[in-house]
Simulated scan of single mutants.
Amino acid sequence: MAFTKVTEQPSKYRHLEKMTVKELVTNLNNEDKTVPLAVEKALPQIEKLIIAISDKMLAGGRLFYVGAGTSGRLGILDASECPPTYGVPYELVQGVIAGGKDAIIKSVEDAEDDMQQGWKDLQQRGITSSDFVVGIAASGTTPYVIGCLEDARRNGVLTGCIACNLGSPLAAAADYPVEVEVGPEFVTGSTRMKSGTAQKLILNMISTSVMIQLGRVEDNRMVNMQLTNEKLVDRGTKMVMEKLGIEYEAAKALLLKHHSVKKAVDAHGAY
Results as ranks from 00 to 15, higher is better:
L158V: 04
K22V: 03
M19A: 12
K33I: 05
R73K: 13
H258D: 13
E109Q: 14
N224H: 13
M211D: 11
Q213N: 14
R235W: 07
P143K: 04
L203N: 10
Q94H: 05
D78C: 00
R154C: 03
P44G: 06
A251P: 11
Y144R: 02
V187F: 08
T7S: 09
T85I: 01
E150A: 01
T128C: 11
M19K: 13
K243M: 14
T141M: 07
P83H: 08
G189R: 01
H259K: 15
K48Y: 03
S209C: 13
G61C: 06
L92C: 06
V233R: 10
T208I: 05
A138S: 12
T142H: 08
L28N: 04
R14Q: 14
A98W: 01
D121T: 07
A59R: 12
N29W: 00
L74T: 09
G118I: 02
E40N: 06
V265T: 12
R192H: 09
N155K: 01
A68C: 10
E40A: 07
K12I: 04
V261D: 08
I146P: 02
D102W: 11
L232Y: 12
K120M: 14
F64E: 03
V39T: 07
K194P: 03
E109I: 07
K5N: 12
M193P: 03
T20L: 00
T128E: 11
G196D: 08
A38S: 13
L63H: 07
D114S: 13
N229D: 15
R221D: 15
G72L: 05
E40D: 10
S71A: 13
T228G: 11
E150M: 02
A163L: 00
I53A: 09
P169C: 02
L58T: 12
V261K: 06
F64H: 03
L63T: 09
K238Q: 14
G147M: 03
V178M: 01
V187C: 10
L227E: 07
I104P: 05
T208V: 11
L58K: 15
V39G: 04
M241A: 11
V35E: 04
V210M: 08
V223D: 06
V180D: 05
D102A: 15
L256S: 13
V261W: 02
C164S: 02
E91Y: 10
K101F: 12
K243N: 14
V66N: 04
H268Y: 15
G95F: 02
T142L: 02
Q213D: 15
L74S: 09
A250K: 15
Q117E: 15
P84T: 04
D175L: 00
F132A: 08
E91Q: 11
L63M: 11
V6Q: 10
H15N: 14
T141E: 13
S195R: 03
S107K: 13
I46Y: 09
R235E: 14
E181M: 00
A163D: 04
G100D: 12
K56W: 08
L170R: 02
R235K: 12
K200N: 11
G118H: 07
K33G: 04
F3E: 08
L256V: 12
W119S: 03
Y13N: 08
D266L: 10
E150N: 05
I51D: 15
A59E: 15
T188V: 03
G69I: 02
Q9W: 05
R73T: 06
I46G: 05
Y65Q: 09
G140N: 05
